[in-house]
Simulated scan of single mutants.
Amino acid sequence: MKPQEHVRVSLLPAGFLTLPEHFFCADQHDKNIKNLVPSMSFLLEHIPSHTRVVFDLGLRRDLSAYPDNIQPHLRTRQPIQTVPDVCDSLIHGGLDPADIDAVILSHMHYDHVGTPSRFTMAKFIVGYGSRHILQNGMNYHSAAHFEKDLLPSDRTIELPVQNILPQFTHPIEITTHFTNRLSSFSPGGQQEWKELHPFDNVIDLCDDGSFYIVDSPGHLLGHLNVLVRVSSDRWIYLAGDACHHSRILNGETGMAEWEENGRHNLKENGFQGGSVEVVLAHDAEWYQNNLISIFPGAVED
Rank of each mutant, 00 (worst) to 15 (best):
R61W: 02
M108Y: 01
H219F: 12
Q28K: 15
E259H: 11
P38C: 10
S39K: 05
R155L: 04
E173M: 09
F271Q: 02
V161M: 07
Y212C: 01
E192K: 15
Q71P: 03
H197R: 14
G188V: 03
P160H: 12
V126K: 13
G58T: 14
A122W: 12
I294Q: 12
R75I: 00
D30V: 04
T115V: 07
L151Y: 03
N290F: 03
N35H: 08
F178M: 14
H92G: 01
S184E: 06
G58Y: 06
A98S: 15
Q135T: 14
A298Y: 12
L57I: 06
A102W: 01
V103N: 02
D99A: 02
I164Q: 10
G94Q: 07
I33E: 07
D200W: 11
N136K: 15
Q191R: 10
I33K: 15
Q71V: 04
G93K: 12
H245M: 02
S246W: 08
Q272D: 02
I70K: 10
H244F: 12
H107V: 00
R229S: 01
P48S: 07
M121R: 15
H50D: 13
F42P: 09
A281W: 00
V53P: 06
H197I: 10
L105I: 06
E300M: 11
D27C: 07
C206R: 04
E277P: 01
M138E: 11
Q71I: 08
V9Y: 01
V37T: 13
E158C: 06
E285P: 01
V279H: 02
